[in-house]
Amino acid sequence: MGDFDFAIIYNNLPFLLEGMKTTLLLTVAAIFGGIVIGTVLAMIRLANIPVLSWVAAAYVNFFRSLPLILVIFWLYFLVPLILGRPVGAFASVLVAFVLFEAAYYSEIIRAGISSIRSGQAAAARAIGMTYSQTMRFIVLPQAFKAMIPVLLTQAIILFQDTSLVYVVGLKDFLVSAELIANRDQKLIEMFVFVAVVYFTICFAGSMIASRIQRKLPV
């Protein structure tokens, strides 16, 4: 095994940091886009609009049946084709993540809203609130609070999943580390370092999520 070469990590920190920036940027943008589209999908499904609700459900089930890598390939291939000009890997990968994650966020948000007992909505309507008031003041605040730990967990999963951009060579944290690993023949150092960094961030995140979970009223 030889000696673990810390210098290789230290010397390449700026380069690795650039990669981590890409990873984080992709994560944050995908969370944002995913939640926006996911909320719309969830609302449509819950509102029981004849054809639209079916389409939303089909969208969610369809994307949930596909491997993320396949979706990444699809969009990497489709986005330039649709736009008629080449685009960077980041743009097409971002579109893939937003479309893919929206399906998962939609289910989380739908479950969150459904978990608020119908008695709550009935009580709000009984004191004369309109449907939108009921949603805004009674259901959504409770639902959102209950959803925070799950949303955070999903964010951690998404953060881990961004490593799959490897398949199209986008220079995220993992790909940056791999480039150094192959260039300098330091596979052990770089991959162990990558694992430790991911673990530290995700472990901290999941600790926070479970702490919030415990504080929530049952």
Partner: peptide, 13 residues
Amino acid sequence: NVPLLVQLFLWYF
């Protein structure tokens, strides 16, 4: 808490 792809590389390389 470690991405699956990273785990795969750890086992492989």
